[in-house]
């Protein structure tokens, strides 16, 4: 039976990925801070991915549960508001969950030979734009995206493909929590739809996947006119943010 790993699989995109993987016949190992309530075909590994010691304690068991045909590093948290008003501890947590832990986990799995197919790092559409109002989040997602780009060739030499996924806003609790007041929910993509596109890209070992036509347009605009798109993001997000949320 094929095996897959999904981090942050209790909510949002990770939950949709886990469900889709089960549907396609994978045995799924889900790593998250809380277990998803009894899902058939899913084994929960409970771990706070912001806690270094907890991650180090979890890794041997995870390697034992492999080798994985697919691994999705999807877990992420955000912090939105004025940069200087968000507590330092929230930034530390965010940078660990979003950037450090996926890198540490990927390196440990590769070293142990516990991946035999493809890795997929879930970054963000913000990789293609500036993201005023979520500067540390943008930093973490840029770091993860460039880690994915950097390891693509060295991991390919070991027979493992690396896919970088940069989804835009999704219809998830996460997005609703961090979106500015009055944001247009119809602009957000269904997580199940994004999961399908990302899974297909990871299976075929594609270098980059940006699910949704609207997100692809933003990515293109961000590449062509980075400053103009960043200013647009300021009006769209930063100037409409209410209180800080982390």
């Amino acid at each position: 039976m094929k095996r897959a790993l999904v981090t942050g699989a209790t909510h949002g995109l990770g939950r949709a990925l886990a469900a889709l993987l089960v549907e396609r016949g994978y045995a799924v190992v889900a790593v998250d801070r809380v277990a998803g309530a009894g899902r058939a075909g899913v084994t929960d590994l409970v771990c706070d991915l912001a806690d270094r010691d907890a991650v180090d304690r979890m890794l041997p068991g995870l390697i034992e549960a492999g080798p994985f045909d697919l691994a999705f590093f999807n877990a992420g948290v955000s912090a939105t508001g004025r940069f200087e008003e968000i507590p330092a501890a929230a930034y530390r947590r965010l940078l660990t969950v979003n950037a450090e832990t996926p890198m540490v986990m990927a390196a440990a799995l590769m070293k142990a030979g516990a991946v035999r197919g493809g890795l997929c790092f879930v970054s963000s559409l913000s990789h293609f734009t500036g993201y005023p109002g979520a500067a540390a989040y943008a930093a973490s997602k840029d770091a993860l995206a460039v880690y994915a780009r950097s390891v693509r060739k060295p991991f390919a030499r070991r027979g493992v493909s690396v896919t970088l996924a940069c989804p835009g806003p999704l219809k998830t609790e996460h997005a609703a929590r961090h979106a500015p007041d009055g944001a247009d929910e119809t602009m957000r993509l269904e997580p199940a739809m994004a999961a399908r596109v990302i899974l297909d890209a990871a299976i075929s070992g594609r270098r980059l996947v940006v699910p949704g036509r609207r997100a692809r347009l933003v990515a293109l605009a961000g590449r062509l006119r980075p400053q103009a798109v960043t200013r647009w993001m300021r009006r769209l997000v930063f100037e409409r943010l209410g209180r800080a949320v982390w």
């Binding site: 004025r82 890198m103 500036g130 540390a136 770091a143 460039v146 980075p226």
Partner: peptide, 25 residues
């Protein structure tokens, strides 16, 4: 991106994302 300095490249990309956002904010 740099295959032999993956962690370093990632950290510097993170700084780029931070600067892009903060410059506007």
């Amino acid at each position: 991106g740099a295959a032999d300095f993956a962690g370093y490249a990632a950290s510097k990309a993170g700084l780029h994302g931070l600067a892009r956002a903060l410059a506007e904010e």
